[in-house]
Amino acid sequence: MTEDIKKAILAYAEGSNKTKFYFKDMEKAVVKTIPEAKMRDVKKAATALVNEGILIYFSTGSSTMYGLKGRGMTEDPTEGTE
């Protein structure tokens, strides 16, 4: 199931107008496609995508969001398009 969840996450991330999104919104989108996916399964799949270098974390310090690597955000916030 992890592979299916990964695909659902990527479909959501690629289809979204936003360059960064909250975990909860990502989870809701996954559950729409795979209703039996549990929060833990989505977190595991998202962590795997981060470890594969496909997803990235964006942190303000107080809250964290996810994004697709290379899309919109770079390590220098003066670059890229938000």
Partner: peptide
């Protein structure tokens, strides 16, 4: 404030 910098994983 904030950004994508961090340590891997």
């Amino acid at each position: 404030h904030g950004g994508i910098v961090g340590v891997f994983g």
